[in-house]
Simulated assay, not measured.
Amino acid sequence: MNWKWYLSDLKDVPKNGLKVFSCFSCGGGSTMGYKMAGCTVLGNVEIDPKMNMLYKKNHNPKYNFNMDIRKFKKLPDDKIPDELFDLDILDGSPPCSSFSMAGAREKGWGKKKKFREGQKEQTLDDLFFDFIDVVEKLKPKVVIAENVKGMISGNAKGYVREVIKRYKEAGYETQIFLLNAALMGVPQSRERVFFVSKRIDLHLPKVKMDFREKPIPYGEVEKQCKVKVGKPISQALRKWYFKTPAGLRLADVHPKGSFFSYRKLHPEKVAVTLTASTSGTHLHPKEPCGISDEAIIGLQSFPQDYDFMDQNVQYVCGMSVPPLMMKGVASEVIRQCFGKELAAHGNSKAENR
């Protein structure tokens, strides 16, 4: 599927019979990736009511839990649908800003934080372990968890060892992959870590991940956009915008290194990581403006007909997993771990015709 696609395209994807449930679902970036890979996504857990509203609007989940993962994991078994105890894949992207390569990193570990939506404070470092508690409760065959590259860098490696240990205690063996979305059909250089954990008792094979698609430069995305530019930048930024060569940050030419979060895109190079922060942004390569919402949607490989309702497009996209990136990961896990099972599923369907 091309980076420019529509939710309506999903109806033509053949179903493989595998069932998925998503935690920390946000706007459903990973959900769309699983659907692209042929899975049935049963529903989600999402703490933020605004993001959950978007999820419901665009994905119409069968089972929807608008609550804290810590509340979900404590639900009595009879309050959880039986289907969720028979999952093929449990998906999750625990909030990861504590481990981002940008910002304070270690200084923020162990401290309570809250997002701009006014959610209650949470110790973000702990949420991965809360997610594994859900894994232990539901016992899916495979678990796929996405997180930032910073998790496997520096002192955070100790945290990762604890994650792997906790997965093993829950009955899962874990593999870790560092992948770049730019090599997976997404027109954006976005490195992310994926934890692929398989139930030990099922003796599933080790998974291999090797993506080598040709990177897509920003100019190719803009060519297919009807709207080329976004909002004009402020006067304070304009002076430095015109002094900054395409491909560099404004901070690279500013004598004090100011405006670090603003980058002027290069039409012949892949766009850098799209963040959720709306205080810094990707700038158009030729005009003193941001890039259009249409371009942002394309960079994140979101569907062109996604209904953002009244939410900020960059925030939703930046908070989400690029659908095409998750499609790549899910497709390989499905092929390598469920291949024989899917073949049997296909033969069974043929016999019942």
Rank of each mutant, 00 (worst) to 15 (best):
K206W: 11
L178H: 03
I296S: 10
G290W: 11
H254C: 06
S234T: 04
E268K: 06
K226W: 15
F302R: 02
L250C: 05
D210A: 13
A276V: 15
K226A: 15
R263D: 10
P285M: 10
V272Y: 10
I216Y: 02
R263Q: 14
S279L: 15
F302P: 06
V186Y: 00
F260L: 12
V193D: 00
I291D: 05
I296Q: 12
S277H: 11
T174G: 08
L274V: 06
T281D: 15
H254Y: 07
K226Q: 14
D307T: 04
K269E: 00
I176E: 04
A246R: 10
Q300S: 07
K286S: 14
M184F: 01
V253H: 02
S292D: 02
H203D: 10
K286D: 14
D201G: 10
S197E: 00
Y262H: 02
I200D: 07
V253C: 01
S258T: 14
H254Q: 07
H282I: 05
K256F: 05
K269Y: 00
E268C: 07
D307S: 03
V229M: 14
G230A: 05
L183Q: 08
F242P: 09
G230R: 06
I291T: 04
Y241I: 04
L283N: 11
T273H: 03
T278A: 10
L248D: 06
P187N: 01
